[in-house]
Design a protein around this nucleic acid. Structure first.
Length: 476
RNA sequence: GCUCCCUUCGUCUAGCGGUCUAGGACGCCGCCCUCUCAAGGCGGAAACAUGGGUUCGAGUCCCGUAGGGAGCGCCA
């Protein structure tokens, strides 16, 4: 039988990191087994569901490349089907109308609690003899009274529930609308879902759903319940731990494949491997390697994973992302070196695209001033002659290439009897304004010949001004 | 309260009875490389929640305890 999985979010907010992992595992499982994955929007709660939330879910999944093999299913479009199934269950006696009032239900729950039992419905309308014209009834599922439900969970192992612990849950409200535990079953059955992969907050719903499947004459699917994702401090992942909305990670300059890699590894492993391409995730993923306990989200490791992907992803794939980011930071990508060169130079020193763009500023626009600390230690009086020599040597460089530039810089160092650091650092600060940058040859290529010369001259003037100031103070 | 689940370095994890003086990764510290910053290499500190069993032998199996979590809606 062909594997069919689904991801069934309710559109009541943005796409959460935890939800993404559920979607990813369902998608990877289907892809790994050559099956199908389908998105289903659980929007029966019309009060809380919004189109904006639906769009956020669609955008988030699209960004990550978690694609559905069939058009998304919307539960609100399936109300006639639910009504039909409810009628059938009523007719077959697997469900019944309940005329209890809210007060009665509350009293029941209180009584159960008093006896040290969990609050539940006592089944008093089961016999069908409590018709009341003044109360609009709900429809309840007739749960088996005894026996047990065994769930062989693909992640958690065998879990056994006593039917005596389960009460008759409402499947249709008094206004006729269906409830969650019922629509899930009807949809999973109609969609021929073979594997339900979802958060483990649903384990306790599972026996009820299995009972409904059976009452409908359907074979229940296999289940896999995924543990939760916690924040770095071990508590429930929330906004105070940083971004929980996946789309914010796109804004922060993360690569979708890095997100997928990190999120997949949160609760799943494949030996000692840390970095995976999407194809590798599909090839290696399976539910038997999913861990059973909750995992904590670690932003530091995510950053590292992102950098690893930045270093391995083809430059042409990164170029459009960097271009967009440069524009966002107010830079004109045409006013500097080709993006490919910039990426090659900065990819191993940046953890995000945003950081890469920030490091690229001095190659695409003039910098305001030298970094104060860098200038103090490297643009010293002694550096003046070095820069002058450098300017002359660089003027003689034929092709403005990394090798030729480095040769020239080394030549100056030798000629002056200085260590390379004494020459390269003043030059670096002169042309970038900063004490740190890629190798000096590459840096000068990125800055460009003309700009480099201008900036060296600017640095020389800067040093001379500093000397004048210092001299002035000395006389004063 | 009741039901169900979980528990290996700070974090993600390997471990599926002996190969565990517990391995890898992030982070941290040190060294190397080196024109800076990275990247990379090498090394270090750092964990089997706890008590009982079972067994020749337990991180691995069973039971209890503690701690954590989820669920118990006419929400999903």
């Amino acid at each position: 039988m062909k594997v069919r999985t689904r991801f069934a979010p309710s559109p009541t907010g943005y796409l959460h990191i935890g939800s993404v992992r559920t979607a990813l595992y369902a998608w990877l499982y289907a892809r790994h087994h050559g099956g199908e994955y389908i998105l289903r929007i659980e929007d029966t709660d019309r009060e809380r569901s919004t189109q904006a939330a639906v769009d956020a879910i669609l955008d988030g999944l699209a960004w990550l490349g978690i694609d559905s093999d069939e058009p998304p299913v919307y539960q609100t479009q399936r109300f006639p089907r639910y009504a039909e199934v409810i009628e059938r269950m009523l007719a077959e006696g697997t469900a019944y109308r309940c005329y209890c009032t809210k007060e009665e239900i509350e009293a029941m729950r209180a009584a159960a609690q008093a006896h040290g039992e969990k609050p539940r419905y006592d089944g008093r309308c089961r016999a069908g003899d409590r018709y009341r014209p003044d109360v609009p009834p709900v429809v309840r599922f007739k749960n088996p009274l005894d026996g047990e439900v065994v769930v062989d969970d693909l992640v958690k192992g065998r879990i056994v529930f006593a039917n005596a612990e389960l009460d008759d849950l409402v499947i249709a409200r008094s206004d006729g609308t269906p409830t969650y535990n019922f629509t899930v079953v009807v949809d999973d059955a109609d969609m021929r879902i073979t594997h339900v992969i979802r958060g483990d907050d649903h384990v306790n719903n599972t026996p009820r759903q299995i009972n409904i499947f059976r009452a409908l004459g359907e074979t229940p699917p296999a289940y896999a319940h995924l543990p939760m994702i916690h924040g770095p401090d071990g508590t429930k992942l929330s906004k105070r731990h940083g971004a929980v909305n996946v789309l914010e990670y796109r804004e922060m300059g993360f690569l979708p494949q890095a997100m997928l890699n990190y999120i997949a590894r949160l609760g799943w492993s494949y030996g000692d491997q840390e970095i995976f391409t999407i194809d590798e995730l599909i090839r290696y993923f399976d539910l038997d390697r999913v861990s059973r306990s909750a995992a904590s989200f670690d932003p530091m490791k995510l950053l590292w994973v992102n950098q690893q992907h930045l270093m391995r992803t083809p430059v042409e794939q990164i170029a459009p992302l960097l271009e967009e980011q440069l524009r966002r930071q107010g830079l004109d990508p045409r006013n500097g070196p080709p993006l490919e060169l910039t990426i090659e130079a900065l990819r191993e020193r940046s953890q995000t695209i945003v950081e890469m763009a920030e490091r690229a500023h001095c190659y695409y626009e003039e910098f305001e001033a030298f970094d104060e600390k860098a200038a103090r230690t490297h643009l010293t009086a002694a550096a003046r002659d070095v820069l002058v020599a450098l300017k002359e040597a660089l003027a003689k460089v034929g092709e403005w290439s990394e090798n030729a530039i480095e040769e020239a810089v080394k030549g100056v160092a030798e000629g002056l009897g200085l260590k390379l650091g004494k020459v390269a650092q003043p030059l670096r600060v002169a042309v970038t304004g900063q004490a740190a940058s890629p190798g000096i040859g590459v840096t000068l290529v990125l800055v460009g010949r003309e700009r480099a010369v201008e900036r060296i001259e600017r640095a020389i003037r800067y040093i001379e001004q500093q000397e004048v100031k210092a001299g002035g103070e000395g006389r004063g």
